[in-house]
Amino acid sequence: MNPKAIDYKSFFYPPGGILLWMIIFLELITFGMALGAMAFSAADNGPLFHQSRLQLNATIGTINTAVLLTSGFFVAMAVHNFKAANLQKSSLQFKLAMLGGLLFIAIKGFEYYSKIDAGLLLDSNTFFTFYWLLTGFHLIHVVVGLVILFVLNRNITTTSIETVEASAAFWHMCDLIWLLLFPVLYLIF
């Protein structure tokens, strides 16, 4: 479909498609409920959550935030260039976005390794149970998003604008979830 023909103002076609936005809302609500549970749990165990939070490296978390946002920026640019029929540039930007995703996973892997090395595991305490479950579930989303971007980029010459927008929206959803997780896990308590 010609992008100019899509009526984004229609309730049934938000950029990315209505089905993907339903998934995005379900994901945000699910993560939001878990963060709410974590906040209430922290209210009962303030010192434990504070001490545990201090064992996380906020600088690594900030670097990962920057990496994910940069990757999201390249995806947004890639969609823009795809709409302008500049497929070569769009493909390059999707590749840069994937590189960002891989870097995020590598940094997360390093962080996980240091936590395992320090004996801070899923059953160490309530804070680390939330930490492992929330960041692990988010990491699965990043991996799935990377697979989607890889398949999309391989078929960029034959794919439709709807598919490109939906794939991009899924990748941005990983940004949104991380922007909810990061302050609560690394900075607030």
């Binding site: 984004y8 103002k9 809302f25 709410g36 906040a39 609560v184």
Partner: peptide, 29 residues
């Protein structure tokens, strides 16, 4: 980035509402 600014007002209001509820719960706890 997700171009929600172009979407129907209901989607824009919904994302703001979800964010407000999540932040509200975290702030109140």
């Amino acid at each position: 980035f997700m171009e929600l600014k172009k979407a129907h007002v209901a989607w824009r209001a919904a994302i703001v509402a979800v964010l407000a509820v999540i932040n509200g719960v975290i702030a109140v706890a």
